[in-house]
Amino acid sequence: LLMAAVIARVAGVPRVIACAPPDRGSGQVADVILAAAEIAGVDELYALGGAQAIGALAFGSETVPAVDKIVGPGGLFVTLAKRQVFGIVGIDGQPGPTETLIIADAGADPAWVAADLLAQAEHDILAAAILLTPSRELAEAVQAEIGQRLEQLSRAEIIAQSLAAYGGAVITPDLTAAVQAANAFAAEHLCLCVRDPWALVPQIRHAGGIFVGEHSFEVLGDYVAGPSHIMPTAGTARFASPLTVEDFIKRTSLIGLNAATAAALSPVAARIAAAEGLDAHAAAARERSKIGD
């Protein structure tokens, strides 16, 4: 909520509306969400989640006003619902399951790398947590750390399923190959746990966010570090970007010609229109070319 509402406010959006799923027991939105909405300057907050929230925001209901744009990640059904209403409203993208790639060299701390992979896999069983490293020794050490830590975690079953289906370690010939693989994957999060991480940054072409160095770990980006953490997933970082104020700004073209300029340009426009077989267009242009005759 903070990652979207704060940016909307900074962009100057006059009315910010948010939806949050209610607690199944009380039917109320959690206090921490209410507090975040107040801090972020949300005007209206509705106890509503899932695809039904997307439908209500897009079309309006007796209690929920229709909006112009819907932003923010969600589960599979939220993503599918956003796809359905795109064109009726604007959307920021169609974020899918979260994903993290970690590029690490032999000097990386295996405990830290393991902790970051576990944190990513904790999201859900479709999350991807992948290590790219030229060091087999590091990969084996990370695997051992994960084994030791996994059973201590409350979401161990989800993590285990995620790692089994979408996680793993890839041994690359060198860091150059690791960067090439990362660019091909175009991950939502790319963490550079190497001796000189800034040397790799110019080589990264596709990533939602780059976390530079072992102290710039992805969990901080989830909550407190960097710009918005609403980032492109599923390879869409090849052509999409994280949420910014520009997602809440639209541009209108303004065309204003004086009589002489219109008269000078009209014959050109008429010629192009005639080539396209649009006689009415050509006639409208020729009318303006008579100005000053």
Rank of each mutant, 00 (worst) to 15 (best):
P21I: 08
Q180A: 15
E140G: 00
A186S: 10
L57I: 06
A47P: 14
A141D: 00
E157A: 15
W112K: 06
D23P: 05
G90P: 03
Q203A: 15
Q203W: 07
A18V: 01
L138R: 00
G256C: 13
A104Y: 04
F217H: 15
L257D: 04
Q52C: 05
E137K: 12
V179R: 06
V201Q: 08
P134V: 07
G93Y: 03
R149K: 12
Q161M: 12
I249Q: 11
A111H: 07
L57Q: 05
V42K: 05
G256S: 14
L257W: 14
R149S: 14
I39R: 12
E137Y: 00
F239T: 03
G25R: 14
K250L: 06
V268G: 06
I255L: 15
M3R: 11
V67R: 07
V13Y: 03
A164P: 01
A129E: 03
A274N: 10
G41A: 00
V6W: 06
D43S: 11
R24C: 04
L45V: 07
L138G: 00
G60P: 03
N183F: 03
A160V: 04
F86I: 07
Q84H: 09
A128S: 15
A106Y: 04
A199T: 13
I102S: 05
G213I: 13
G72Y: 02
P73L: 10
V29N: 01
D293V: 13
G96W: 01
G277P: 08
G208E: 08
Q84C: 03
L278A: 12
A8V: 02
A237N: 07
S253L: 14
A178L: 10
I54A: 03
G107A: 07
T252H: 08
T261I: 11
F217W: 13
G60F: 04
N258A: 08
A144G: 12
W198H: 13
E276H: 09
G256W: 10
P242A: 15
S266D: 08
L45C: 04
A169F: 01
V212T: 14
W198I: 08
P202K: 08
R251K: 14
A285T: 07
V170I: 15
G221D: 11
A160W: 02
D247C: 04
P95Y: 00
I159T: 09
E276N: 06
A129T: 11
V67N: 01
I39W: 07
G167A: 04
D92F: 09
V16W: 12
D279F: 08
H206Q: 10
A81C: 04
G60K: 05
V64G: 01
C193R: 05
A274S: 15
Q143G: 01
A164G: 02
A182E: 01
V6Q: 11
L175N: 12
A186C: 12
A18R: 05
V42N: 02
